[in-house]
Amino acid sequence: GYRRVTIDDVASRAGIGKGTVYLHWKTREALFWAVLQREALRLFDRLVAELGREPTLALPHRLMRVIFLEGVRRPLVRALLLADAAVLGNLAQDESVRAAQQDLAENPDYLQMLADEGILRPELSGVTAQHILASVARGFSNADELGEDDGLPLEARADLLAYVLRRSLENDTPPDSADLAKLNARVTAMFQAMADGHREQLQRAY
């Protein structure tokens, strides 16, 4: 966690002097944010690659299933999803971290894309859809922290998340191939822009 890790710890584990760390990152916050960005970048790159292989991944039930599984496998991605202060410390309240969290779990641009292509349920507004998406995603990701171990395998939990989001957010009529292709292109471009932004910031740090 952020509170317990010092620059001395990082330098010692890396086998370098503390001054070398400070050549790149002037504060512990800057170093920790770079680590979070690296994890977010890896996720965004993976999503872009998978969207290129599978158009239906642009649908919320498919997309959030992948993000949920990545959150389990990548503790820092999970910490971003939950704004986990135990892991993130003061960064949990940072505007940059909040923006990254929104990118992952409740992106209003993404929800507008769903509405534009006729995929979002017509009775839902952007605000209500955003609330559903964020609440469901966090609830599934936070179940372990709440002691809700029901013995379900990880893949079964991911399938349940997909089921809930498909029934609550997506139109009953599946999108046609043209609408799905347009959504996929827009979602791919969105994640590519996110990846490029994080990559540029990380390159400047080095």
Results as ranks from 00 to 15, higher is better:
Thr6Gly: 05
Ile7Tyr: 04
Val10His: 04
Arg13His: 09
Gly15Pro: 15
Gly15Gln: 12
Ile16Ser: 09
Leu23Thr: 11
His24Leu: 06
Glu29Trp: 01
Ala30Val: 09
Val35Ile: 08
Leu36His: 00
Arg46Gly: 14
Leu47Ile: 15
Arg53Phe: 06
Thr56Leu: 08
Ala58Pro: 00
Leu59Phe: 05
Leu59Cys: 04
Pro60Ala: 08
Pro60Ser: 10
His61Gln: 10
Leu63Val: 00
Arg65Phe: 02
Ile67Phe: 02
Leu69Ala: 02
Glu70Asp: 14
Glu70Cys: 07
Glu70His: 11
Leu76Gln: 01
Leu76Ser: 02
Val77Asp: 02
Val77His: 00
Leu81Ile: 14
Leu82Lys: 11
Asp84Leu: 02
Gln93Lys: 12
Glu95Ile: 15
Glu95Pro: 13
Val97Tyr: 02
Val97Trp: 00
Ala100Gln: 08
Gln102Ala: 13
Leu111Ala: 01
Leu111Thr: 01
Ile119Leu: 10
Leu120Phe: 11
Gly126Tyr: 11
Ala129Thr: 03
Ala129Ser: 09
Ala137His: 03
Ala137Gly: 04
Ser141Leu: 15
Glu148Asn: 06
Pro153Val: 07
Leu165Ser: 00
Arg166Leu: 08
Arg166Gln: 13
Asn171Gln: 13
Asn171Glu: 13
Thr173Arg: 15
Ser177Trp: 10
Asp179Ala: 15
Lys182Phe: 06
Ala185Asp: 14
Arg186Met: 08
Gln192Ile: 07
Met194Asn: 05
Met194Val: 08
Asp196Met: 10
Gly197Asp: 09
Glu200Asp: 12
Glu200Leu: 12
Glu200Phe: 05
Glu200Thr: 11
Gln201Gly: 04
